[in-house]
Simulated scan of single mutants.
Amino acid sequence: MSGFVSISRRVSCNSVVIALLTVSTVIIIWGAGPSPDTGEGSLRATGYASRQQRLDAIIVLAGGQTRDGGVPLWVARRLDRAVELQRSQGEPFPPIVASGGGSGAAPPVLTSEKFIIHESTSCASYLHKKWNVDFSSLMKEWSSYDTEGNAFFTLVQFAKPLGWRHIAIVTSEFHMPRAKALFEWIYGLQGAGHFPERISADSSKRGAINQGYVLEYHSVSDDGINEAALKNRIESEKRMLEKVMNDAARIKTMEEFHHHFYFEKKYYSTAKQDLFGKMVNNTGLY
């Protein structure tokens, strides 16, 4: 009888242990999930998304200068927006790249010693003096003389060697359709980014994302710009955009683009270098 009681006690004890372990396991599993009362899971997810979407850099497109080497109204707006984006990211701040060397349709602004003040230099000076943007988070690109050059040189001088993926592009409303088309085309060329062998025959799937770049576009207002000049510039932008789309349809790789850029483009081709400085932009807008 005592043996039976002993066995019964052992069975009862084991049952209690198993029951407690089962309950503990349920509690642990339930406790590992987000609390519906605190919303902790949602906060974690939001934080993760924010980290994933953090900008690697901000590229602001230059667009002309004043006679004293300053920046015109529309460029100042672009730069102000770039600072707003940079500060929205928190520290460490992503770098701002001011992109622009000058224009083949307007003479350069010179220092008193006759040295060129590049458009990107004017932009960098504005950002540092007005907004106290630290030089450690401010860079400039001065090889470009048009928007196609902005896209190409920021890609090969900054984005690709530095491994940037998530980049903001800032320019004016009148300029944005063509700027966006150029950046999507050039950053999406086969060999341009993180997936050098990838190329899609489906035109709907082409673009910067195909090479691992996530580009976001921020346009600033055209308010205050001379109405007639703005109207003329918008018409000019439409014509140039059509040419961009035609070029993008036939040029798919970095090798093909390199040939196009240095042998067909009027600003960069040695065969066409005599045209440099003889082209006129009557609107003054870039």
Rank of each mutant, 00 (worst) to 15 (best):
Y268Q: 05
L230R: 00
M254G: 05
D56W: 01
E256V: 06
I28G: 00
I96S: 07
E91S: 15
L241G: 08
S122F: 07
L43M: 13
E91W: 10
R239K: 07
G47T: 02
Q86A: 11
L189I: 03
I117L: 14
K238R: 14
I59P: 00
T111K: 05
S122W: 03
L241F: 04
L155N: 01
T25C: 08
L43Q: 13
F4E: 10
I209E: 14
Y267A: 13
P92T: 14
P36G: 11
Y48E: 14
V17E: 09
V220Q: 11
S143E: 06
S236I: 03
F257M: 01
T253K: 07
G102M: 06
S221K: 03
L79H: 05
I251F: 00
L230Q: 07
E173G: 03
E84F: 10
M245R: 13
I167D: 07
L230W: 12
E237R: 06
Y268T: 07
S269Y: 09
A32Q: 09
A45T: 10
E141S: 06
S172Q: 04
P92K: 13
Q86H: 04
V133L: 03
G41Y: 07
T171R: 01
K180W: 14
K114E: 12
I28S: 04
D223G: 02
R9C: 12
S136R: 05
R44Y: 11
V23I: 13
G70P: 08
G212E: 11
R77V: 10
E84L: 11
T283Q: 05
R51F: 08
G207Y: 04
S42E: 15
S144H: 02
R67T: 12
A228D: 12
K266C: 10
A248M: 08
R10S: 13
K252L: 15
F183N: 05
G277F: 00
L138Y: 04
R51W: 04
R206L: 09
K278Y: 12
Y126R: 00
W74A: 02
G100M: 03
G284K: 04
G70D: 02
S12C: 13
T147F: 01
G193N: 07
W142M: 15
S24H: 08
I58A: 12
